[in-house]
Amino acid sequence: MSAPIAHGGGITAAAATFGGRPDDWLDLSTGINPSPVALPDIPARAWHRLPDRHLVDEARRAARDHYGSGEILPLPVPGTQSVIQLLPRFVESGRIAVTDDRIAVTDNKVAVVSPTYGEYARAFTSAGFTVDVVSDIAAIGAGHRLAVVVNPNNPDGRVWPAETLIALHDRMKAGNGFLVVDEAFGDTDPALSLASHTPQLSNLIIFRSFGKFFGLAGLRLGFAIARSDILVRFEHWLGPWAVSGPALSIAGSLLRTDVSPIRSRIDERSADLQAVLLGAGLQISGGTALFTLVADARAGDIYTHLCRHHILVRKFDYAPDWLRFGLTPDPAADRRLGEALQRFER
């Protein structure tokens, strides 16, 4: 079993090391909207009863309209992490071929366009697959049974146009393989999404995050978008009542609201964050509307310095010169971050 991956959001551990109460820390280590939307009214029966089919169906219809998936009804899942761990079931671990009285075992490889969210490679490695970490889609070949592309990518914000991903899907399908496109940060730029193409792309699986955009990560809610035969397999593997009634009720309401004010607020926060970072003399090297990536040779020292000021950002063991800054919640947090960065001894 591979070692756990260090993700953002570890305020408790940071406070144990650098002091202070977790509630007093400024957490910029995740890519979550720091201005959570107001919760809609949740019927008492959503708490009292097991999540009935009508709640699931309403959430699926709302997700279809929100994501623009046409005839496809997205499947609610208890956070996309839950279905990432199921992906190895779509790929045979290997094929045994007998030719001229000789037995050969072929290794069905998986490609993950990287650097990216580490749980994809970990899920397949833990299941015994060979994972090819590739830097570009062009490196994905006929020997790969499944390919993963995060679009926009985490943590560098790299994007791939729809036509490029559709062409990759067609290559994967020709070899009976699957393409997984993670659109966890796609709500801030809907034009990037492949959701509207899903009905025509039989071997495509899209994952969408709910909590990041709406600022409700604690719900542990996401959606899988794919042809019905694929979604039925996910639903079977997850088992009954996988998503809570309150989460389904909230999704059914919020996905039908006008989200343009949320996007505008996120864009405003993103612009203010970048102004703080540039004002501190840091070099922005990538990101999305929900986070900004900084490249600096002093990244490790900056990380420790900010922790001493009870500000947590995201560092990367595979890229020691990178720091990822999530959005600040308000101008007061901008000033707090800016003042801490100005105190850093260069």
Rank of each mutant, 00 (worst) to 15 (best):
D170K: 13
L204W: 00
K173W: 07
R145I: 06
D170L: 13
S196K: 13
E183A: 07
L168V: 07
K212R: 14
N154D: 15
V134R: 03
L201R: 10
V133G: 07
R171P: 00
L179Q: 05
D187M: 06
R171G: 02
D136V: 09
A142S: 14
A139S: 13
L168Y: 00
S202L: 06
S193L: 07
A147H: 00
A191K: 12
I166C: 04
D189K: 15
R145P: 00
P199K: 05
T198W: 05
E183Y: 03
S209D: 10
P190C: 10
L194E: 02
A217K: 14
T198A: 15
L165R: 03
M172D: 05
H169F: 04
V159M: 12
L165Y: 01
A139W: 06
P155M: 09
L165V: 08
V150K: 02
P190F: 10
N153W: 01
F185A: 14
A174S: 12
S135N: 09
F207I: 11
P161N: 14
D182R: 04
D170V: 08
F185T: 08
G177C: 05
V159H: 07
I137Q: 04
G186K: 03
V133A: 14
A142L: 12
P155L: 11
V133D: 07
L168M: 13
R145N: 03
A139M: 11
A138S: 15
A174L: 10
D136A: 15
T198L: 04
A174H: 12
S193N: 08
F207R: 05
V134I: 09
S209R: 03
P155G: 04
A174E: 13
W160A: 06
L201D: 01
N153P: 02
A138I: 10
N154T: 13
D156F: 06
L165N: 02
T188M: 09
L179F: 06
A142P: 05
T188L: 09
D189Q: 14
P199A: 08
Q200F: 08
D156L: 13
G157R: 00
G141C: 09
R145T: 07
A184E: 13
V149M: 00
D132A: 10
V134D: 01
W160F: 14
V181S: 01
E183Q: 13
G218P: 02
G177W: 02
S202G: 06
L165I: 10
S193C: 05
G175P: 03
F178E: 00
M172F: 07
A167K: 10
S196F: 08
G215H: 03
G175H: 15
M172T: 06
N154V: 14
V148I: 14
L192C: 07
T198P: 00
L165D: 03
I205T: 09
F178D: 00
D170W: 07
N153C: 12
S193Y: 09
T198D: 04
I140Q: 02
P152Y: 05
G143W: 06
L146N: 01
N176A: 11
G186N: 01
V181H: 02
D156R: 10
V134S: 02
G218T: 12
L179K: 01
R158K: 13
Q200K: 14
L204F: 02
L146C: 01
A162F: 05
F178C: 04
A162W: 00
S196P: 00
S135D: 11
V180F: 01
D189T: 15
P161V: 12
D156I: 10
K212E: 14
L179N: 01
E163Y: 14
L194K: 01
M172H: 04
